[in-house]
Simulated scan of single mutants.
Amino acid sequence: MDARAIIGWNLRQFRVAKGLSQERLALAAGIDRSYVGRVERGSENVTISTLEALAMVLDVPVAVLLTEPVEGATAPSPLRSGRHPKSSPD
């Protein structure tokens, strides 16, 4: 797996685990949503500054985004699309 694919895999893994959409992650990191998608697909050369911004939002060390996934690991499931229903007042 090349470096861009590793970063994309890990980014998606942590983003989904946090329950963040690409849009929310991008907004919090101060980058464009489509850029996040390209990074996750491994088609973008991401800068260290951008990795740092993404890692800060995901609350993980930058180095974790560069760690190769274990062999045989399955890709993270996508988040449910659409808006989440508003919670009812108690």
Rank of each mutant, 00 (worst) to 15 (best):
R41H: 11
N45G: 09
R80P: 01
A26D: 11
E52Q: 07
L11C: 14
A17M: 06
W9I: 07
L66S: 09
R41M: 14
I31H: 06
T47N: 07
L25E: 05
Q13S: 05
A17E: 08
D90M: 10
L25A: 11
E52P: 01
A29K: 09
G82W: 07
W9E: 04
Q13T: 13
S49C: 00
R83H: 12
P69Y: 02
L27K: 03
L11M: 15
R38T: 10
S49E: 15
L11K: 08
S88W: 09
R12T: 12
I48C: 01
G37H: 03
L51F: 00
R15C: 10
P78H: 01
E44F: 14
L27Y: 07
E23M: 10
R15M: 10
L20Y: 12
S77E: 14
E68C: 09
A55Y: 05
A5G: 04
A53G: 08
E52L: 05
G8S: 05
G19L: 08
S88Q: 13
V46E: 00
N10F: 07
E68V: 12
P61I: 04
R12Y: 05
S87H: 11
L20Q: 07
T47V: 01
N10G: 02
K18G: 04
G30P: 00
T67G: 06
R80D: 12
A5V: 06
A28Q: 15
D2V: 09
E40L: 02
V39P: 00
L66K: 11
E44R: 06
A53I: 05
A17D: 11
H84P: 07
I48V: 15
Q22K: 09
P78L: 03
Y35L: 15
S77M: 13
R15T: 10
G8C: 01
V62T: 13
R24D: 06
F14N: 13
S43F: 05
A73V: 14
G30I: 04
T74C: 00
R83P: 09
V70Y: 05
V70E: 14
L27W: 11
S81C: 02
E23R: 14
E44W: 12
I7A: 04
I31Q: 02
V16C: 10
H84W: 12
E68P: 14
A29W: 06
V39Q: 08
T74S: 05
T50R: 06
A3R: 04
V36Y: 00
V16N: 05
S88N: 10
L11Y: 03
L51W: 02
H84N: 13
S81T: 12
L54S: 03
A28R: 13
S87Y: 09
Q22M: 11
L20R: 07
